[in-house]
Amino acid sequence: MTTQDLRDDEPEALHELAIELERKARARSIPDVPVGVMSCKDVDVYYGKFRAVTGVNLEFGRNEITALIGPSGCGKSTLLRSLNRMNDLVDGARVDGDVLFMGEDIYRKGVDPIEVRRRIGMVFQKPNPFPKSIYDNIAYGPRVTGMKVDSMDDLVEEALTKAVLWDEVKDKLKQSAFGLSGGQQQRLCIARTIAVKPDVILMDEPCSALDPIATMRIEDLMQELRQDYTIVIVTHNMQQAARVADRTAFFTALADKGTGDRTGVLVEFGRTTQIFEDPRDQRTEDYISGRFG
């Protein structure tokens, strides 16, 4: 039984139970130590002189969903954006330490950030479709990266199908993406990311601008995508992390006594069940139980 079957008409308690069971089942299926596609080794991220995050060591497991949680200003989004060199677009941003993708340091000299972003895609907080047709939104990535494509039509259909959007838009592919609802736009952005066939998908609070129903659909979609992709998601919503993530990393911000600057640090990283049910660090427990943050 899947959560989808229950969601339509069963009482909420049963729905919660189904989610719980699914989560437990998933927790059992992942290895104790993540088999990493990506990892961070002693990563610091700076904006100019300001150190936003420091000393992060993380392993992102293949076909797993890893959630980065923590209070505002703990650097979780900053870290996420350094995983595919999106921070390069910010003046003065700099990364120390190694961010490894399949063993290769993506900040090594000679690495082209454009190639990095092709393999490690990103979905943003606010849906940001291009002001083009639905079709052209999907076809954009394959076109600009010069992918060899037999049939663009098939590729567009495949990406939209994987993002569970095809049935809703198949009759209006030539219409502007701006005519879609917020939730549909976000799924379009996910489809757009899938179309360039990345290995990793980074999601920066992908549901924070969406209503609960659209959020649920994106969460269902993430479970589907997990079969093929490695997903890293930043979320403010702890229930969301508990619902979707296989592993969770909890960050917090430490204030420098001298300057007062707040720097993000990784507090605890483990299976989501462990982080939520049996946190090892007091700060994690305080945050999870709502005592701070």
Binding site: R117, N128, F130
Partner: peptide, 27 residues
């Protein structure tokens, strides 16, 4: 033109000139 569009383009592996000509310019 909102920088979210530029970021979206960059995240798909477009270079700066492609982003300029295909996203920013038409917008």
């Amino acid at each position: 033109v909102p920088s979210a569009l530029r970021q979206g383009s960059a995240a798909l592996g477009a270079n700066r000139m492609q982003t300029t000509m295909r996203v920013v310019f038409p917008a």
